[in-house]
Structures are given as C-alpha cells and as structure tokens.
Simulated assay, not measured.
Amino acid sequence: MTFDLVLTGGRVVDPSQSIDAVTDVGFADGNVVAVEDGLAQLTNNVRDVTGKIVTPGIIDLHTHVYWGGTSLGIDAEEFARTSAVTTSIDTGSAGPGNFAGFRKHVIEPSETRILVYLHVSFAGIYGFDPVVMVGESHDFRLMAPNHARRVIEENRDVIVGIKVRIGRHASGPQGIAPLDVALGLSDETGLPVMCHIDEPPPSYEAVVAKLRKGDVLTHCFRPFPNSPVRGDGTIKDEVLAARERGVYFDIGHGMGSFSYRTARAMLAGGFPPDTISSDVHAFCLEGPAYDQLTTMSKFLGLGMPLDEVIARSTVKAAEAIDRPELGTFRKGAVGDASILSLVAGEHRLEDVEGEVLTVKERLMAEGVVVGGEWWYPK
C-alpha cells in the first residue's frame, strides 16, 4: 500500500476509536487509510509532526461564514488557518432567498468544507451589527418554509439542518412562534432544527421543551437570564428531560452566550455540552469568543479532559449533523486532520460576562490536512 501523505510522530487523539497514542496517520485518494506505526516508510510525502497533537478534522458546529453576503460573515479559509477547523457549519447566515449566492460565491469556491443550517427566514440573519440590530424572526412575513423546502430539496448535499432564532432580540413580538414554523419544516424535510435562544421571552424551558431527538439547542450555557440552571446552581427539569429525549446541547459561544458560572454549574451537575462550538462571526473575532480553539481551551481550563474536548468538536459534531464520514480517522473516512499544540503559560480567557479564567495551557493551530492533502501551512 502506498500513501499520498503520512503524518508521523504526532500524538494521535481520535475519540471515535478511543485512540490516544503516538503513531502515524496515512491518507490516500482523499481518505484516511490507516492509523498505525511504520507508515512513514511507505511514501515520500511525510510530514513530521512530532510533539504535536493530531486529531480528525475539527468541526465547528456554529459559525457564520457567508463572507460578503451578510454583516456577520467571516472568511472560512482564514478561519481554518487560525483555528484548524476543516468543516465550518454555517448556522442560518443565509435563508432560501439568498442561499444561491452563498453556495455559488462562498461554499463552492472554498477549499475547506462548509455545510449549512438553512434559516427558515427568507434572507437569513441579514441585519446584525453593533449599530443596526434587526431580529429576522420579528416579522412573520419573512418566515418562508415553502421556499426553504424547495431550496433544501435542491441542496441536500450541503444543507444539514434548519436554523431558527428565538428570544427577545431575535423574535421579539413573535415569541416562540417561529420555532413552530421551523419544526413544521423539519417534519416536511426530515432535517433537524438548530434553535438559537437569547434573552426571554420566551423562556429557556419553553423553548427546550419543544425540541425533539436530533434537534440542537445552541447557546446552551447562557448566563442569566435564560440560563439552564436555577439560582442555586441546580439544572432545570426541562433541560434534563430534553437530554433524555436526545436533544443536542451546543455551546455557540459568540458575543453573549457563554458563562463560566453556568458552565461550572452544568459540569458539576454532570451535564457537559454535547458539542463545543464558537459561534464565530465578525463581531466576536476580537473577543470574547475569538475562535474555535479558544472556546475549546476554555473547557480544558474548566477541567474537561483533552479527549472529551476533542470529541465534542469532532465525532460528536459529526453525529449531530449525521455525517459519519467526518470527525474520525476510521478507515475510509474523509481525509481531514487538524494539527494542534498545547501551549503552556498563563493564558487569560474571558467569558461573555467579563469573568477571566487563567488557564495553564491552551490549544493552538499548527497545521491542516484537507482531503488527504497537507493544506496549511504550505
């Protein structure tokens, strides 16, 4: 067997197979072929990653990468370089009215993978910046489930779910009703819903009570108000019931949706997030979210083991979007890999409330493999 690329000498951490060992990873024809010792002698294209961590390609389940098409959008390829994210899941930047432009001008030219939760609102998240803040779910005339159904049927190769935003800022006078529209579209198409929640109304409990197995609640570790925990730190009953049903709880850090206080209470209650995501967009690149690796590093600082942090950004994220070929080094899987380092020091990482956690080590990007080829740095 010959290989197109072998990564050698790195600490391979693949939670999907319970692998945590210094070994080689071999790629051929765009896929993973083997994870075992001695592969480097079988090809001339070897990358020595000794001292680095090698993981399946990192998946950020909540991003906004419709660059140039919305005020939120960042460049997915630049994000991959700085955060070693090989698959960006865009969550609602585009709706059925502007998805065609997103696909043609951003998704198809991108050398890194972009998958999509299509917004049920016609133009997606179109009016969001520090000065102009228009909640797209405020106006029910913009709910477009019929248009969205047609766009989904034509683009199932890249659309993995349906996005809706609920809360005082996002849906305002419409309350929880846009979620009902999204759930109806889900029933029609068979795709899960990702639901954003911000400040009440409606309450966290009311929103999560409507979600079903396979749906995702993002911004799940929000601060008060609309936190999943009570003032005494106990987890709300509706939250526990939703996990029992199979609802996924996603971090979606962003500008205002991740609190250390909430995270500590949830972890102490035996309720880690299912997935860790950044909600990276143009207005949180300089903090408090920064990027996916910073968000992951915050959980290391909170005491979550490295393999669990990686699992929630690889195999668990792939499970949430029903793409088992991603987030794993199993033979035949897509040949994506993220090469990371754990940098020791005194790293000060803030949450959305301004609390600073000083962590002793943080993850940094060192390299990216996409489709079995070394992609960055050249």
Rank of each mutant, 00 (worst) to 15 (best):
D14Q: 12
V131C: 15
D90S: 11
K213N: 14
N45K: 08
D75N: 12
L115W: 09
V120A: 03
V106M: 03
V229G: 08
F122D: 05
G184L: 13
N226C: 07
K236P: 02
S257L: 06
S18R: 00
P130Y: 08
G332N: 06
E319P: 04
T63C: 05
A320Q: 03
G167D: 10
F271K: 08
A40R: 08
L363V: 12
N226Q: 07
V120I: 02
I125V: 05
E188S: 08
D237T: 14
V216F: 07
A268M: 10
H253S: 06
K378P: 03
E238A: 07
H119P: 02
S93G: 11
D48S: 13
S297F: 01
A317W: 07
E353K: 13
F224V: 08
I166K: 01
G184C: 09
F299G: 00
L293F: 02
K236W: 13
R212L: 12
G287H: 15
V134N: 09
T23R: 03
G256M: 11
G167I: 02
F283N: 03
L293M: 06
M304P: 00
L211Q: 03
F329R: 05
R103D: 07
L240V: 05
F79K: 14
V356F: 13
G97A: 04
G252K: 07
T23H: 08
T262A: 14
V356G: 13
A317S: 06
I59W: 02
I152N: 01
I74N: 00
I235W: 06
P202I: 04
I235R: 01
E244D: 15
K210T: 04
G73A: 04
E366D: 07
M296Q: 10
A333S: 10
G269S: 11
E350A: 05
D180W: 04
G167A: 15
E319D: 07
M364N: 15
A80T: 06
L7F: 13
V216W: 10
P272F: 07
A21F: 00
G92K: 01
V134I: 14
E199L: 13
A209F: 09
A289K: 04
A265T: 14
F283G: 05
N31K: 14
L306W: 00
G101Q: 09
H347A: 06
S257E: 14
V132F: 06
A241G: 14
G95N: 12
S18H: 00
C195P: 00
A209K: 14
L191Q: 02
R156K: 04
T218N: 14
T55V: 12
L300T: 02
F99H: 07
Y126A: 10
F329Y: 15
P145S: 09
G231L: 08
V54Q: 04
G30L: 04
G68L: 13
I89L: 10
R212K: 05
T70Q: 09
S277D: 13
F99E: 01
G10H: 01
D307E: 15
T294W: 10
G327H: 00
